[in-house]
């Protein structure tokens, strides 16, 4: 694998994380539990889709095959998406949505923080821009984890259950393969082993305030980075891609 191929894959992965979570969150539009939350979730979705635009545009440029960010977003097949399985997980309810958001936001924050030091100036610039936005995302989801965890018996039980159910999707965030190794060697990528410790401590700190129990590390689901997705992914893509598939090359 050449450096260029690794850089394409690396940028695509980050872009797909933002894109797919942005799509998931936007499903809440018009369905939020209160108006302010409806607005908050769609604002966060907008930030994520904006980040995806920057990352996928750069991936397309690195790839050099005359594709652009829209083609990467709307015209790939399921196995060509390299997002984490966690971000494609369905919304289910507000508790599951916030648990998913929190577990990812903490990762996203520390990942981008490290990526600002990348030797690749475009990735560093995107990270610098995105980090400011993600800082607000982490605050938002952390406050909900605490409010729900340290809330009523019902909210506590449900958010704990959501965290337990999603836990097996968190291991994938820190798995490194050849792509990561090449990127780290080039000074471009982030050492995920280091992020793992920071993520764990950060999550634990919030869980303590939320009176939640850290689940045990056990079997972890993998596959997203290789394009092997959960059964939920196809439904998400069929909705996201519908317009471009039905009316090829249509413009907004």
């Amino acid at each position: 694998m050449t450096k260029q191929e690794a850089l394409f894959e690396y940028t695509l992965r980050a872009g797909d994380d933002s894109l797919i979570l942005g799509q998931r969150l936007s499903e809440w539009c018009g369905h939020g539990p209160v108006l302010e939350e409806d607005i908050a979730m769609t604002n966060i979705a907008l930030d994520l889709i904006g980040q995806a635009t920057s990352l996928l545009a750069y991936a397309a440029e690195v790839e050099g095959k005359d594709r652009d960010e829209d083609q990467l977003a709307f015209l790939r097949y399921e196995k060509e998406y390299k997002n984490l399985l966690l971000v494609e997980h369905p919304n289910i309810d507000f508790g599951v949505t916030m648990a998913r958001q929190f577990l990812f936001d903490v990762f996203h924050y520390h990942f981008f923080k490290e990526l600002t030091q990348s030797s690749d100036s475009q990735l560093a610039a995107i990270a610098e821009k995105s980090l400011k936005e993600v800082t607000y995302h982490v605050k938002h989801s952390s406050e909900w984890i605490i409010r729900l965890g340290d809330g009523t018996e019902e909210s506590h039980t449900r958010i704990q259950q959501a965290v337990n159910d999603l836990w097996e999707y968190t291991g994938e965030m820190f798995v490194m393969d050849q792509v990561d190794e090449i990127m780290i060697a080039e000074g471009v990528g982030v050492d995920l082993a280091r992020i793992k410790t920071i993520w764990h401590d950060h999550v634990q700190q919030v869980f303590e305030r939320a009176t939640l129990t850290m689940p045990e590390y056990g079997y972890m689901q993998l596959g997203g980075r290789q394009g092997r997705h959960t059964e939920y992914m196809g439904y998400l893509l069929s909705e996201m891609q519908y317009m471009q598939r039905a009316y090829p090359n249509m413009q907004w």
Partner: peptide, 9 residues
């Protein structure tokens, strides 16, 4: 503060 997120980003 009512919400950290408002009518625009």
């Amino acid at each position: 503060m009512i919400s950290q997120f408002g009518s625009t980003a």
